[in-house]
């Protein structure tokens, strides 16, 4: 499991999957897929539709159990029964459809299910608002002035920023994002990518799926390519370009020694 990073130092991946198999009826979504994410790095997971990206991410997030294979956190074997087990391990997930409550304001969303309480049953909204504002400021999310507006009034990029900031506030180790920029315009995408970098700079491992290869090359420290349910290539920053990524995604290129036979 231990690999040698760019500086020659051995690093244990904070989150990893080893030879994971997942079958849905007749469909073999994952056929021995492996994956590693390291602290303080953005790891992009790319692949064609049906390559198994979403399935793999759900397994890493605890939303699906693997049929075979291992998931490890800091090298320790784990079995997530549900996403809360993963959250307890410091792994937060930002889903494609955001999962915000549109009628609640940003602090209420950020603290939903983990409210700061007083007198046991009451919530301390003022304190939640203060902490949310502080965290947003620290992450450079420019929504501090809208702390009282329902998030339904926010633009798509602002909503995505709230969702990512929420994950960043609670994740101690890993944030997993499923296509965080898929529905966003150019400027909003830049802001979200900046946010991803800032989260990474705090030492968190960021894992994200994207179909936008220039964006992947811009922001990812490492890129892992899935094809037909297994990993076919890994690149460090600067080792790849769009053409090579496309070649890997379409099966014309591989740098994995042991691609599991289908």
């Amino acid at each position: 499991m231990t690999t040698v990073d760019g500086n020659g130092a051995a690093t244990v991946p904070v989150l990893s999957a080893h030879r994971v198999v997942k079958t849905f009826g007749q469909v073999r979504a994952l056929r021995g897929a492996s994956f590693e994410a390291y602290p303080g790095e953005v790891t992009a997971l790319v692949g064609d539709n049906g390559a198994g990206k979403s399935t793999l991410i759900k397994i890493l997030a605890g939303a699906l159990p693997p049929d075979e294979g291992e998931v490890r956190v800091d090298g320790e074997l784990v079995r997530f029964a549900n996403p809360h087990d993963a959250k307890d391990r410091g792994i937060e997930t930002v889903y494609q459809d955001l999962a915000l409550a549109p009628d609640l304001d940003a602090p209420a969303n950020v603290f939903l299910g983990r409210e700061i309480r007083r007198f046991r049953y009451l919530h301390n909204h003022a304190e939640m608002r203060r902490r949310t504002a502080a965290a947003f400021r620290e992450l450079g999310v420019g929504l501090v002035q809208d702390m009282r507006a329902p998030v339904a009034a926010f633009s798509g990029g602002q909503k995505q920023s709230v969702a990512i900031a929420r994950a960043a506030m609670w994740a101690s180790k890993v944030i997993i994002m499923d296509e965080p920029t898929a529905a966003l315009g150019v400027i909003q995408t830049e802001k979200v990518l900046d946010l991803i970098k800032r989260v990474r700079d705090r030492g968190i491992a960021v894992v994200f799926i994207s179909h936008n290869l220039p964006e992947v090359l811009q922001v990812a420290d490492r890129i892992e390519v899935l094809r037909l349910g297994s990993r076919v290539a890994r690149f460090r920053r600067g080792e790849s370009d769009v053409d090579r990524l496309i070649a890997a995604i379409s099966g014309a290129y591989t740098n994995e020694e042991e691609v599991t036979a289908a």
Binding site: P83, K87, A99, L100, A101, A108, L112, G113, L122, H123
Partner: peptide, 24 residues
């Protein structure tokens, strides 16, 4: 308006899936 119970009531009415994913 003041209890966590009410907050969760709003959240469920607003988006039950978000409430579920938040562990409610």
């Amino acid at each position: 308006h003041m209890a966590v119970f009410g907050r969760h009531t709003y959240a469920i009415g607003s988006n039950p899936e978000s409430a579920r994913r938040a562990g409610i």
